[in-house]
Design a protein around this nucleic acid. Structure first.
Lengths: 141, 141
DNA sequence: GTCTCTGCAAAAACTTTGCAAAGTG
DNA sequence: CACTTTGCAAAGTTTTTGCAGAGAC
């Protein structure tokens, strides 16, 4: 794995502890945190971190293609360091948001039999429903 | 087409001019307006309409399944009276949001060869890219 | 040393809430 | 008439902005 500092430098960003912290957190997390969650998590190890910096940092990352913004219909946006297009699942019971790795549901626009009257740059598929854990818990109740 | 008043009554809602106006606007619009746009449009014909009422009304409609909330990553939510699951296109040039009628991109989770470890209730597919009009304008420039 | 980034606080944007007056059935 | 809905204003959330001091290169 490439060093976070090097990735940032290659993108033309100055390397700061705050940026490294945000990017590392996103790389090593599967929960798709929102800005507030990122801030609260990093506060412990980066006492001077501010929420405004998290927002500014995420905005830089987003425009440089280092992270993907994900909006599942909550008040706030979530962020994902997996930047290739891939579907997400949202559990309407526990609220968890997960990456879904499924070839049949990926790159859908490239598999069409007829071209669309729309030039697709990227696609976002969100499946709403019940995650395995919540379904199991319900059956046992 | 069923009368809007009757639809509301069947859902157990009191029929008010505000609710009829909001629902009719969504039924006859293809632009997927947000609350602010709905409010500004209806202000002309319903002078006493308030933005809070638009929000409350949309919330009722959403929970009763009369409208669908759509979040394409702007600050605000858009609304669609087409409540069956269907894909949407978002033009990153002009910002227009359109319904896409394409069987290959509809009910995707029902067409999987293997079941997922997730019980899908509904799906939302958003294609980001360039709409036909913007592509044409660009080629002519 | 230059130029960018951070952190704070204030502001902006979007949405929700409480309550009195008005409207619906 | 009983009960819900509206409209207003105020508050709550989430995100953005401006600017002085700190930090990266």
């Amino acid at each position: 794995m490439k060093e976070t500092a090097q990735v940032l430098r290659e993108k033309g960003l100055k390397v700061t502890p705050q940026r490294i912290a945000v990017y590392n957190m996103l790389l090593h997390s599967t929960e798709h945190p929102n800005a507030e969650t990122i801030y609260r998590t990093l506060e412990a190890t980066n006492p001077t971190m501010s929420l405004a910096t998290v927002y500014k940092t995420l905005d830089f990352f987003k425009h440089l293609g280092l992270v993907q913004e994900l909006n599942v219909g909550e008040g706030s946006a979530r962020y994902d360091a997996q930047v290739h297009c891939h579907p997400h699942t949202v559990c309407t019971v526990c609220g968890c948001v997960s990456d879904l790795y499924n070839d049949e549901l990926t790159d859908l626009h490239k598999k069409l039999s007829k071209p669309l009257d729309f030039e697709v740059a990227c696609e976002q598929l969100i499946l709403y429903g019940k995650c395995a854990a919540c379904k199991k818990a319900e059956e046992e109740a």
